[in-house]
Design a binder for these strands. Structure first.
Length: 565
RNA sequence: UGGGAUGUAGUGUAAUGGUAACACUGCAGAUUCUGGUUCUGCCUUUAGGGGUUCGAAUCCCUUCAUCCCAGCCA
């Protein structure tokens, strides 16, 4: 109880404060907080979007309101149904539900058009025939004001006629533009007569060829928010300069409901890239195999890698939300993955880099079955039988002919425990002609059956193992960070220079517990002492098992060992 | 004197005029049938300067630093 209450006491972030203040002062219609997640369907959702999703859906949930999913599809040149579908799949996987409230900016094209016509009639918008180059020139610069377009005072009737002709497809792309009549001298460039509609002969994923004029973001987004009754429209910092445009659009005559825009800092993580454009580039260049390559920070990629939605949501909540540009440490992401996976992952024994171990005093044909814990963290998880026999595989790094200081695994004369099974002592080894160790010879203590002895003598090392006769083969994909520097591209200016050449290491000689044949994508696994893994959703099969490493286990030994050498 | 925003341990985020704190990282140690987990401890913080105040991370002035904006992208 105490713990729960303390959790509730956690201080509010700035958005929660705004909402609670609005609620307390009766500024929220029907006391219902309405937010929206408005992705543009021009790429796959990534970790950065998860923050926005959690914020928007989380805020609505916390205050008993609702959150809409609105696809911001105003630029048919870049958008695609592939993305529209993946976005919905990814949000659902994260565990959020927009219920009936799935919308598209394109749902409002008719209304948007009618409002634009009204604007023209009121003399608040005009058709401009400036070329893009001229537009740029007339716009002025950051430090100097712009100039009015010669078309700014075009008669209303003519504006109306030209806008209609634009709609009917009577003019080529770029010929005309509908612009709001605001202030060319504004220090805010977004207010220097922003474009409202442009001509684009592109077929739209939803409206097909109905339109050849498409509305711009600064016009569409705020009005869409207003139409849907959004109360709190939250977006990232770079839209701060657009807020005056937002406020202008939501105060157009006839728009009753006026939502407000609030900005927060987008999520950045070191060693990662978080822009759709650059992620798309990685796919196009073949640096990764696809959008769902397990090294990608896309939701679909992280999912395939083996992260759970719970750990991702936990990550976002730990990151917090503020208005300061920040870079979150990659370590926090891995911490969240491990913390979650530790509680839920099924433990299994897999030898990544096998070396044979023969127990010379163990009967040749005998097989014993031991019960292994499925998860020591979860008493409910039960046990599974694992076969043991005279010939086993252990991890090559679990043996050293000449042990370094502090090494308490297997070496000549040393006794270790084979997890769940017996104590074994190394008596000898077999080498090939080149002097490479090819086999380790041991004796076992029959009294240590099950992994403990009556005399309670201590063994410092415990190794995992698989029975050579029963083991299955398969492919293990060891993933690491896609970039090897904290800020990809920081030194050379080209992020491609910092791609980590070892971001994927494929192991094909691994030996696994037979039960792994039945593993399925979506099952959280821990290969004991090696890390967390998941069957690959595309390539895994019983005939050819394939596992992706989600994240390693924390490893305090290799650090120590490296320091010594 | 273009506009807008932001500065709290290495990294995130609290403290909203009253003892600067939590998490991650890092470093020690204890426990452990995973060198995992768990537990304990340690390190390091209010951008600078001035002012108001009994008292300032918080209010005021000022300096500095960083980020965003000149798409018919979102």
């Amino acid at each position: 109880m105490d713990g729960l209450e303390k959790k509730e006491e956690r201080s509010l972030n700035f958005l929660e404060r705004i909402i609670e203040d609005d609620l307390a002062n009766g500024r929220v219609p029907d006391n219902t907080v309405v937010t929206r997640f408005p992705p543009e369907p021009n790429g796959y959702l990534h970790l950065g979007h998860i923050k926005s999703i959690c914020l928007n859906f989380g805020l609505a949930e916390k205050y008993g309101g609702r959150c809409h999913l609105r696809l911001d599809d105003t630029n048919p040149e870049k958008e695609d149904v592939e993305y529209i579908e993946s976005i919905q799949r990814d949000i659902k996987w994260l565990g959020f539900d927009w219920g009936e409230h799935l919308y598209h900016a394109s749902d409002y094209y008719d209304q948007l058009h009618a409002i634009a016509v009204n604007l023209i009639k009121e003399g608040k918008a005009y058709i401009d025939s400036l070329t893009p180059e001229q537009m740029k020139e007339y716009r002025g610069t950051l430090t100097s004001p712009g100039r009015n377009s010669p078309d700014r005072d075009r008669p209303i009737e003519e504006n109306l006629r030209l806008f209609e002709e634009m709609r009917q497809g009577k003019h080529p792309e770029g010929k005309y533009l509908l612009r709001a009549k605001l202030d060319m001298a504004s220090p805010n460039l977004n207010m220097r007569d922003p474009a409202l509609y442009r001509i684009k002969y592109a077929s739209h994923p939803r409206t097909g060829d109905k339109w050849c004029i498409y509305p711009m973001y600064d016009y569409t987004h705020p009005i869409s928010d207003a139409i849907e009754g959004i109360t709190h429209s939250i977006c990232t910092l770079e839209f701060e300069d657009h807020r005056p445009a937002y406020d202008w659009a939501t105060s157009i005559d006839g728009i009753e409901h006026a939502p407000h825009q609030y900005e927060f800092a987008r999520l950045n993580i070191n060693y990662m890239l978080m822009s759709k454009r650059r992620l798309l580039n990685l796919v196009k260049l073949g640096i990764v195999t696809s959008w769902d390559d397990p090294r990608m920070p896309t939701i679909t990629g992280i999912r395939r890698r083996g992260y759970s939605p719970e750990s991702l949501r936990d990550f976002v909540s730990r990151v917090g939300v503020a208005k300061v540009e920040s870079v979150v440490d990659y370590n926090l992401l891995e911490f969240c993955a491990r913390e979650d996976l530790n509680k839920r992952a099924k433990r299994l024994m897999v030898i990544l880099d096998p070396i044979k171990l023969v127990i010379t005093n163990y009967p040749e044909e005998k097989t014993e079955w031991f019960d292994a814990d499925n998860n020591p963290e979860d008493p409910e998880s039960g046990t599974r039988p694992i076969p043991f026999s005279r010939e086993l595989y252990i991890e090559r790094e679990d043996f050293m002919e000449v042990p370094i200081k502090g090494y308490h695994r297997l070496y000549p004369g040393n006794e270790i425990r084979l997890k769940h099974a017996y104590y074994v002592t190394c008596t000898d080894m077999v080498k090939d002609a080149d002097g490479n160790i090819v086999e380790i010879l041991c004796t076992y203590d029959p009294q240590s059956r099950g992994g403990t002895t009556e005399d309670k003598r201590k063994v410092r090392g415990t190794s995992h193992w698989v029975s050579a006769h029963h083991a299955i083969g398969g492919e293990i994909r060891l993933y690491d960070k896609l970039f090897s520097t904290e800020y990809p591209g920081a030194t050379t200016g080209n992020y491609l220079d910092d791609v980590n050449p070892d971001s994927l290491v494929v192991l094909r000689r691994a030996k696994m517990e037979p039960s792994l044949r039945d593993a399925k994508a979506g099952e959280y696994l821990q290969f004991i002492r090696n890390g967390y893994f998941m069957a690959d959703s595309k390539d895994h099969s019983a005939a050819h098992p394939v596992f992706n490493r989600t994240v390693t286990l924390k490893d305090s030994w290799s650090k120590k060992a490296n320091k010594q050498n």
